[in-house]
Simulated scan of single mutants.
Amino acid sequence: MASQDPFDSALDLLRRLNPKYTANNVNALINLVPDLTEDLLSSVDQPLQVQRCKKTGRDYLLCDYNRDGDSYRSPWSNEFDPPLTDGTLPSERVRGIEIAANDAFDIYRELYYEGGVSSVYFWNLDDGFAGVVLLKKCMYQSFVSSANESTGSWDSIHVFEATDRARISHYKLTSTVILNMINGDESLGEMDLSGNMTRQVEQDMPVGDDSSHIANIGKLVEDMELKMRNLLQEVYFGKAKDVVGDLRSISSLTQQEKDRSMHQEMISSMSKR
């Protein structure tokens, strides 16, 4: 029997582990099999880390798409930290679009998330360019009176390719959302909702100049985030509500018996007719 590829085995293992600890699990696998380092870091979506740009003082997000070795490029200064002399940078034209896109999505982040951190990174392709839009929002609440805590984080990663054509650009967008929510209470215990979701879409959109790319990418990301938020609400929150409703009833047993008895009486009276 042929042995299974180590990379496929690592991915299968990660799918079966709690997505809340993806970063720790990836690091553990890298320590076990160092040869898989690059493949795992480029293939597995992890919760985004925040770092501060030393030149501008603004926060930015770390991912595999702005990493070169052990250094990360800031979208605000276009410089690597730690510094690199031969780091990969976008061309002058693509960098110009990247700057405008960071300004646009910074406004989008404030309007939709009312906080958090956003970062956009572009790089060159032979027939166009590609990029990633990153958004992160964390929440922490502590209620002393009821002795409970609520924590949560939302990480969205939108990777796209834009292929240039005559007055039209073909966009391919792959979006991943990583959700983690914990609500703890002394009387009810702790509830943990953690998971991720990935969706993909392709679309041709008209292009007049470089600013059209920003509007097109913004529309694709906005529509995709709306769809994924609705799906998460149905899958995570809807299912959790059903489970909690089946396990714990708000009304008393006496009231339930009374309602059940009234229901049986109505059925009996209707059947006699």
Rank of each mutant, 00 (worst) to 15 (best):
S42C: 01
Y112D: 11
N102T: 09
D242H: 09
A2E: 12
D59H: 13
Q200W: 07
A147P: 02
W154N: 05
E225F: 02
V44Q: 08
V117G: 02
G87N: 05
Q256K: 14
L134S: 06
I217P: 03
R199A: 07
M197T: 13
A147W: 06
K54F: 04
Y113L: 15
C138M: 09
G184S: 11
S252D: 14
K137R: 15
P6N: 00
L41S: 04
D35I: 02
G152L: 03
A130T: 03
L32P: 03
S9F: 00
L84V: 00
G69S: 03
T176V: 07
K20C: 12
D39T: 01
Y21E: 05
G131F: 01
R58Y: 07
D223H: 02
S156P: 08
C63H: 11
Q203W: 03
S77G: 07
N31R: 11
Y65N: 07
A162Q: 03
V177F: 06
V33N: 05
Q264F: 10
V244K: 09
E257I: 08
V117C: 05
N196T: 08
R229D: 11
E234M: 14
N148S: 13
I157P: 00
M191S: 14
D35W: 01
S119E: 05
G238Y: 11
V177P: 02
G57W: 05
S251G: 05
C138L: 07
I107E: 14
E98D: 03
D127A: 14
A101K: 02
D35V: 01
E190P: 04
G189V: 02
I99G: 09
P19K: 04
T151Y: 07
C63R: 06
L84F: 00
A100D: 12
G116H: 06
Y72R: 05
D45T: 05
L220F: 01
E186W: 05
Q4S: 12
A2M: 12
L173I: 04
N230L: 08
Q233M: 13
Y65M: 11
E161Y: 04
N31K: 14
T198R: 12
I168S: 06
I217R: 02
E79V: 03
T174F: 02
I97L: 15
D59Q: 13
D59I: 06
L111P: 00
N196W: 08
R229H: 11
F237Q: 07
N102L: 08
K172V: 06
L32I: 08
G96N: 09
S261N: 11
Q46H: 01
N24F: 12
S118D: 11
L226R: 11
D209T: 06
D86G: 00
G69R: 03
Q256G: 10
V44N: 09
L61C: 06
I99Q: 14
S71Y: 01
V243H: 06
H263W: 11
G218H: 05
N18P: 01
E92K: 12
D106S: 10
D155F: 01
A147Y: 07
E98Y: 01
G184P: 00
S150D: 10
D223V: 03
K239V: 15
L14R: 07
